[in-house]
Write a protein that binds this DNA or RNA. Structure first.
Lengths: 229, 229
DNA sequence: TTTTGTGAACTAGTTCACAGCT
DNA sequence: AGCTGTGAACTAGTTCACAAAA
């Protein structure tokens, strides 16, 4: 059986939210799903946490703990059924229904992201680009994503059922655009602009900060240069 | 004074490597630098950890600890001199000398990154794009970054002094391209391709996984949908 | 036997709180 | 008085190790 395993009780044997799961955990779930996709296309039917860990450089105990938090998906003595576990993970991550995404900013980056193939897999659909430049509105990306006027964000995101926004506008406009996104009722945002954004408490903002990433690499190089004999 | 504060002794009063600093810390250093830039352009000469924390939603003790690890940059009763601290941080992060960057893959994403203004500030210079498509080689990005044949990577990166590579190629080629980057003697890589990469031990790979980021947002939305009354 | 699910032990990271400098 | 630098306390995250299930 399963004794309730955190502050808030969770209905065992079923997917579930609660308590709030760490971002590190959800990132790993996403990773596990990717691994399972690889395994499935290789024809693997069943996998133990041990084997999964070895094959993808993960830790077996951590895999088990991550999964066990959401239900008893494994079979003792056997492992996990790839197809089953995939289905469970997709459900937990909310990938079992199509999620529509809008990209704010039809500049270089926005257009590139709109056509990025990685975004299309696993149930995401880039439904729209938004920009404020007259000459861009009405055009579309190479891959065929239409560019709308940012003032129509609310209307179009309601109509298209857009639930995620990607912010790919220049830093000085980012806060304003985020406010528009919030006003349109969109609750999840992937942000590519650098700098601090003020975000309403019911929204989730996930930032990819390219400057920070590069500078972190620079630090690594600086260490190597100065140090060692 | 300062008692040696970790396993390996550090020369106090000076910047310094050692022990290995956590990635979380280096990311924050980069962030602090950005905050200082804002403060400096606002004309602020001096700032306390307290004030810095309030203004940018950080924790004062953490700022002090992060900074103190690299030297005694503050003045008791005063705080930190903005200009000084900026200089120290730039030095610690290795941003005091220009760093040249190559982008592998002149597709949508690679071209967008090549012209991304955020990359240009703080001492980075995008020197080259590399691709294997005959028709792209010899062209350049809108912003004027030349596209070279990927087979010339070693030669050109030596010539140009390229020290960082950005991987923006489709997932199936990523490992092969990483191997070429390693063979060219480049030790720091920012990777945009999804999936696991095998990386030599003396290299630093930092990955930005857009699928994982989006799926993490999807998880957040799925929680909200199912839960709360 | 194999392998899960999970308490317990451990490790890493953050925040507190205060002595000591200016 | 004001603020840094830093041990100590705390919190979060990971890994171990083993009882129980198949």
């Amino acid at each position: 059986m399963k004794p309730s395993n955190k502050g808030t009780a969770r209905t065992p044997g079923s997917k579930q939210s609660a308590d709030q799961v760490s971002e590190l955990t959800t990132n790993r779930l996403s990773l596990y799903l990717r691994c399972l996709n690889v395994l499935e296309s290789a024809g693997t039917r069943t996998i133990s946490s041990q084997a999964l860990a070895e094959q993808f450089h993960l830790n077996a105990a951590q895999i088990r703990k991550d999964l066990a938090y959401f239900g008893e998906f494994g079979v003792r003595g056997v492992g996990y059924y790839v197809r089953d576990l995939k289905r469970h993970l997709r459900q937990i991550l909310g990938l079992d229904k199509k999620l529509r995404v809008a990209i704010m900013g039809a500049g270089n980056l926005g257009l590139a992201l709109a056509d990025y193939p990685g975004f299309r897999q696993e149930g995401f659909e880039i439904s729209a680009l938004f920009d404020n430049l007259r000459e861009k509105v009405g055009q579309e990306s190479r891959g065929g994503v239409p560019i709308y006027d940012i003032h129509d964000l609310r209307k179009i995101s309601k109509r298209e059922g857009i639930r995620i926004a990607v912010i790919a506008v220049p830093a000085p406009s980012a806060q304003h655009v985020l406010n528009l996104v919030a006003a349109a009722g969109i609750k999840a945002v992937l942000n590519f602009s650098p700098g601090t954004l003020e975000v309403p408490p019911d929204m989730k903002l996930k930032s990819v900060d390219l400057t920070v990433s590069l500078e972190s690499l620079s630090f690594f190089l600086a260490q190597g240069d100065g140090e060692e004999t």
